[in-house]
């Protein structure tokens, strides 16, 4: 850092900090879905990244359709497409839970293998349909450009993604802690067999929770299109980071997911500027390893029992 003046360093930290906020938003959206599926249900979903990619491809498809058939709608399509990505990924999630996951509850290693296989199938499907090259949707003009404050440029797409992740996080917290379904989900997490014995349809709860987690991954994918282009393996690039977020935050803890997504994103963004990409990532991983050695249950362990 010795070659930078204090003013330059301040600008770098603000810029990288904001870039870290964009990464935080995507990691948070990915992590929330995983926290629900891995943390609450105990399913290691290795295909979670591919659900994110599906959300991104859904935006790409909707962008093409809008441009071709409804060009006047281009400024508005993106907001609706986020909901479409949520529904498409949620529906596929419900189907995958019915076809595959429901047979593998209480067998985490088997879910790991099965969902890894599913991730390969989905990646190849994307490759066959969309090709190996990365694609990008046409974003509305209002998402382009940046706000400028002095020497600092704050990209509008970053602000949008941050706002989106705040809305999704707030909605999820409300859903889990205030809705009747959220109550049934929390009951099922605490004691599955007893939940059935008090009248909760745990099969339905599992399916809806998995679908919701996948739907949120779809929203993460939609958000991802505003900051990067989408390829068949885009999701797999984020899956390790998303698992790091959930595990280091404390599985099943939404607060932990938010905290660790913020910490990991900021550490990566700032360290990568000063230490180059790989070294920055190594430094971040080392910090996580130390955190997990000191607190193996994660930063904010949730007070829930296993199934």
């Amino acid at each position: 850092m010795g070659d930078y003046t204090a003013e330059e360093l301040q600008s770098i930290f603000i810029m990288q900090g904001f870039s870290g906020l964009s990464l935080f938003s995507v990691l948070l959206l990915m992590g929330l879905g995983l926290a629900l599926i891995f943390g609450q249900m105990g399913v290691i979903n290795m295909a979670h990244g591919e659900f994110m990619a599906l959300g991104a491809y859904t935006v790409y498809l909707c962008s093409n359709i809008t441009e071709q058939f409804f060009p006047a709608f281009t400024p508005y399509y993106f907001v609706i497409t986020i909901l479409v990505a949520f529904v498409v990924c949620g529906l596929l999630g419900a189907f995958v839970e019915w076809l595959l996951i429901r047979h593998l509850y209480h067998r985490p290693l088997d879910t790991l293998l099965a969902t890894w296989g599913l991730s390969l199938i989905l990646q190849q499907t994307y490759r066959s349909i969309f090709g190996a090259r990365e694609v990008s949707p046409r974003l509305p003009d209002w998402l382009m450009g940046s706000f400028t404050y002095g020497d600092v440029d704050i990209p509008i797409n970053g602000v949008f993604v941050l706002g989106l992740s705040v809305i999704v996080t707030g909605s999820l917290v409300y859903f889990i802690y205030k809705s009747r379904f959220g109550l049934k989900l929390r009951s099922t997490v605490q004691n599955r067999s007893m939940s059935g014995a008090v009248g909760i349809n745990t099969v339905k709860v599992d399916r809806l929770a998995f679908a919701l987690g996948c739907g949120i991954a779809g929203i993460a994918g939609a958000a991802f299109t505003t900051i990067g282009s989408t390829g068949p393996d885009s999701g797999s690039r984020y899956i390790v980071d998303a698992f790091l977020v959930v595990v280091s935050g404390g599985a099943a803890s939404l607060l932990g997911t938010v905290g660790s997504a913020f910490g990991i994103a900021q550490a990566q963004s700032i360290l990568e500027f000063f230490l180059e990409g790989t070294k920055g990532k190594v430094a971040t991983l080392l910090v996580i390893v130390v955190v997990l050695m000191i607190r193996p249950q994660g930063l904010f362990p949730s007070k829930v029992r296993s199934h």
Partner: peptide, 12 residues
């Protein structure tokens, strides 16, 4: 359910 409130337990 130990981590649900009494009210939440009742309506679970």
């Amino acid at each position: 359910f130990p981590y649900l409130t009494v009210y939440e337990n009742l309506i679970s």
